[in-house]
């Protein structure tokens, strides 16, 4: 039995999410412009582990009052399949995109009690200092001890915290917005992403949070691992036999959500769906799953919305 919100049908199905290791880091800079540039650069080409080394996205902007150094910043989250496949891209991306970016510093965004493990990210980056790096210790024996590395660079000095928290997180939370036109679904998608970004602990790794090309595993071409998600392509809905595109739908966008825990992902999905259905022309909301073959989390849409 399907649910209807604001006259939009919510299919009684589930988004199939799976477990990944996630981490959060705070990039600060002289101003939010440079923090954003670093964050964008760092989270680039990190939409899906199908072809990228990790999944990453910007969680939100962080105010001066919230950051350790009192400068504006951006909170970024990264996801990988294991500790190691998370650690590697973190090192690479911080090294290439933040270390290089003027005025930035990087801090851990997942404290020791929130995290399952602490990764030696700053400790790895420090070698870039070629022996001139300086270890900075703070608050030993007073409160939770803090460790940083200071690395001399051409501009001045790059500062990074020694350890970054990582925890078992949830990736692949998703829903599809089906609407009467590409204009409609884009508008609904933007609204949904905006709403999702208000939820702490989640990111939407795709460009602008929206994914227009869902994919399926395999292809008729042997050399291709994945190909377009034929079931949801409106332009072939009537020639592709098992198309799942409703008649009144002519465009679909997917929103994929990774979060630090199941609850955040659920909340984010609910907030996103609720925002999407507000837009006129949205016909249906559904979610992608692989009948439980892919991941251990099944997030039922109606459960999400029930939680609101």
């Amino acid at each position: 039995m399907s649910l209807s919100v604001n006259g939009v049908e919510i299919e009684d199905t589930f988004a199939e999410a799976f477990s990944m290791w996630g981490s959060r880091l705070i990039i600060t800079a002289k101003n939010s412009k440079w923090a954003n540039i670093a964050a964008l650069s760092m989270t680039g080409y990190a939409t899906s582990v199908i072809m990228c080394d990790c999944e990453a996205g910007i969680e939100r902007e962080v105010y001066e009052s919230e950051t350790m150094d009192g400068r504006p910043g951006v909170s970024v989250m990264m996801f990988g399949f294991s500790r190691k496949t998370l650690e590697e891209p973190m090192l690479k991306r911080i090294g290439q995109c933040v270390l290089t970016c003027p005025s930035t510093s990087v801090y851990n965004g997942l404290s020791k009690d929130q995290a399952d493990e602490m990764l030696d990210i700053g400790k790895g980056i420090r070698f870039f200092g070629d022996g001139f790096q300086v270890k900075m210790r703070m608050s030993d024996g007073i409160c939770e001890r803090k460790r940083f590395w200071r690395i001399p660079v051409m501009e001045g000095e790059f500062l990074i915290e020694e350890k970054f928290g990582a925890k078992k997180a949830v990736a692949g939370g998703n829903f599809l917005i089906m609407g009467d036109s590409s204009q409609t679904v884009l508008e609904a998608g933007e609204k949904a992403v905006e709403a999702i970004h208000k939820v702490p602990g989640v990111v939407t790794p795709f460009p602008g949070g929206l994914c227009r090309s869902g994919s399926k595993v395999g292809s008729k071409y042997a050399f291709l691992k994945a190909s377009t998600n034929t079931s949801f392509c409106p332009s072939i809905k009537n020639i592709f036999q098992s198309s799942r595109v409703p008649k009144n739908v002519d465009s679909i966008l997917e929103i994929v959500i990774n979060g630090l825990d199941l609850e955040s992902v659920k909340t984010a999905m609910a907030e996103g769906i609720s925002a999407a259905v507000e837009v006129k022309g949205v016909r249906k909301i559904t979610a992608v799953n692989f009948a439980g073959k892919l991941g251990k989390f099944q997030i039922w849409l109606k459960d999400c919305l029930g939680g609101l």
């Binding site: 600060t28 350790m68 150094d69 009192g70 400068r71 510093s105 900075m136 703070m138 608050s139 007073i142 409160c143 940083f148 200071r150 001045g156 000095e157 500062l159």
Partner: peptide
């Protein structure tokens, strides 16, 4: 060596100011 405004100093100073 140099004269600069190292970012770590802000952190430490804020720690002194806020926590201590």
């Amino acid at each position: 060596n140099t004269i600069y405004k190292p970012n770590f100093m802000r952190i430490y100073l804020k720690f002194l100011f806020n926590t201590l």
